[in-house]
Design a protein around this nucleic acid. Structure first.
Length: 491
RNA sequence: GGUCCCAUCGUCUAGCGGCCCAGGACGUCGGCCUCUCACGCCGAAAACACGGGUUCGAUUCCCGUUGGGACCA
């Protein structure tokens, strides 16, 4: 095994992995880790592996796994090995690899690199508390490290469950992190740690090492929260006889208070950003910008372009605060580039969800309507609100608009408009200018004096899209109806 | 408590000893465009945490302090 890892390394056959726990929705921090692994693999022509760390049976679920897979696909991430993509290093769920961990654990026990520990969780907890109270680092005291055969026998006869502990010899552990640079740990602080729990399930550190080694991972790209686990893992690699991979620890994504990003900071789940109407490519783009920058200072890119530009060397070392405002800006930029067809396809479910009557308005009309409000919104979810003004229900007269119509000039404009409209068949982009020109002459007004009462009467608001669009989208019938209603109300 | 990581405008960042009285982007403010809002364009304010070294010269290297964070849990 070690030899093929060396071979991969020498031949520069990159193998990276993303290993989420299926305990909930994929959040942006993990998504960013997945993305960086994916970028790196694709850029280098390597293999991207997806592995589920589901040894915590209590908290893991098939639903969560399905949701995570779905979110990854939505983001545009696909994996070469993993669930649904059989490879020669499977299975890719830790719950299906329990035997393997036990086998390696047994080997360490046999070689004397690990020992059975009969301490109960209560005893351990008690010791920890006492250490903390006395201000000493809470480190396992090695109580069971040198049990006599007799003691062992009596413990096991008493039916005390045993976990397996790894013997840590105090020494300095150093490694070159691809992001952090040289990192060095004082081995004194590391106590003998559990590799197999008394129920036979592998501990996190042990399972990860066995899996990464067996799956021949060449670069472990993960969150900085695992940095302090690395020396333990390195010790395991060495003792197990595996060649360790390179490590790259990504800075954390935090909230405005610099605490790790969590729900209380707002939306954090990829699925929720999708529901709020953010484009996958925009979210990917923004996430890439958190903790990474392109050489040429460009900020808007497609997934393809991102892959081309990505490099671990340009990942920053300090944590980044998630900024919703900038995400909105990135999203607007991605929305801009979309074709009419794509816009319609993306907007459809969001309009439907908000109760907009998309089925009877006609595709051509809807296209024009979308085009009109498209640049006004930050995300797909806001579309419906901006469109309500073109529908009979859902629009209402704002007080400011009403005030504007109380003036004599306002009423004059409305009367004129009604007369003008009665002379035309329908409002089209072509005759719109003629209508306005003629109305201006009739009312003796121009500019604001002319346009604002029109806007107020037709949209009920003093801000909104271009009036020409409003006229055309409303059509003669609705325009007339609204003008008449407004006039009646103003008198 | 120990170990470890981090520290440039409000935010994301560029900077890998002189190009920097620090550049870009979001946001903010002002102007232009314009029937309004938005878009777009133009402009402004805004930062090297602090203290020691090293050096002819430090944002950049070293040490300490402070602050934030992770892990041991």
């Amino acid at each position: 095994m070690a030899r093929s890892a060396v071979k991969n390394f020498m031949e520069n056959r990159i193998r990276v992995r993303f290993a989420p726990s299926p305990t909930g929705l994929l959040h942006v921090g993990n998504a960013r880790t997945a993305l960086f692994n994916f970028f790196f693999a694709r850029k280098k022509g390597g293999t991207f592996i997806l592995r589920l760390e589901d040894t915590d049976m209590e908290r893991s679920s098939a639903e969560a796994e399905g949701a995570i897979l779905n979110d990854l696909k939505w983001l545009g991430i696909d994996w070469d090995e993993g669930p649904g993509q059989p490879g020669e290093h499977g299975p890719y769920r830790q719950s299906e690899r329990l035997e393997t961990y036990r086998r390696y654990g047994g080997e360490l026990l046999k070689k004397g690199e690990a020992y059975r520990c009969y301490c109960t969780p209560e005893e351990l907890e008690e010791k920890k508390k006492r250490s903390l109270a006395r201000g000493i680092p809470p480190k396992y005291d090695g109580r069971c490290r040198n049990l006599s055969a007799e003691e062992e026998r009596s413990f096991s006869a008493a039916g005390r469950p045993a976990s397996l502990r790894f013997k840590v010899e105090a020494r300095t552990v150093e490694f070159q992190d691809l992001v952090k640079g040289k990192v060095s740990f004082d081995g004194q602080g590391i106590g003998d740690f559990i590799i197999l729990r008394s129920d036979g399930v592998a501990s996190y550190n042990f399972a990860v090492v066995v899996d990464d080694a067996l799956m021949q991972i060449t670069q472990v790209i993960r969150g900085e929260d695992h940095l302090a686990n690395t020396p333990r893992q390195l010790l395991l690699y060495k003792t197990l006889g595996f060649l360790p991979p390179q490590f790259a620890h990504l800075p954390l994504i935090v909230g405005p208070d610099r605490a790790p990003l969590s729900k209380r900071h707002g939306t954090t789940a990829v699925a929720h950003f999708r529901e709020e109407g953010y484009l996958a490519e925009a979210l990917v783009n923004y996430l890439a910008l958190l903790g990474w920058s392109s050489e040429d200072a460009e900020e808007i890119f497609s997934l393809e372009k991102l892959i081309g530009k990505f490099s671990l060397g340009r990942v920053s070392r300090s944590p980044a605060i998630f900024n919703y405002e900038k995400l909105k800006w990135v999203n607007r930029n991605h929305m801009k580039g979309l074709s009419g067809e794509k816009r319609l396809e993306l907007a459809w479910p969001f309009l439907k969800k908000k109760g907009i009557n998309v089925d009877d308005v006609g595709v051509a009309w809807l296209n024009t309507a979308l085009e009109t409000v498209w640049e006004e919104v930050d995300n797909l979810n806001q579309l419906a609100d901006h469109l309500t003004v073109f529908f009979e229900d859902g629009w209402k007269m704002d007080p400011e608009a009403q005030d504007l119509l109380q003036k004599e000039e306002g009423r004059r404009v409305l009367k004129g408009l009604i007369d003008e409209l009665r002379t035309v068949e329908e409002i089209t982009p072509e005759n719109y200018k003629l209508i306005i020109f003629s109305l201006a002459k009739r009312a003796g007004l121009s500019g604001r004096g002319l346009y604002m009462p029109l806007r107020a009467a037709l949209t009920g608001k003093i801000h909104g899209p271009e009036l020409e669009k409003v006229f055309v989208l409303l059509g003669k019938e609705k325009t007339l109806k609204r003008a008449e209603a407004a006039l009646a109300k103003a008198e």
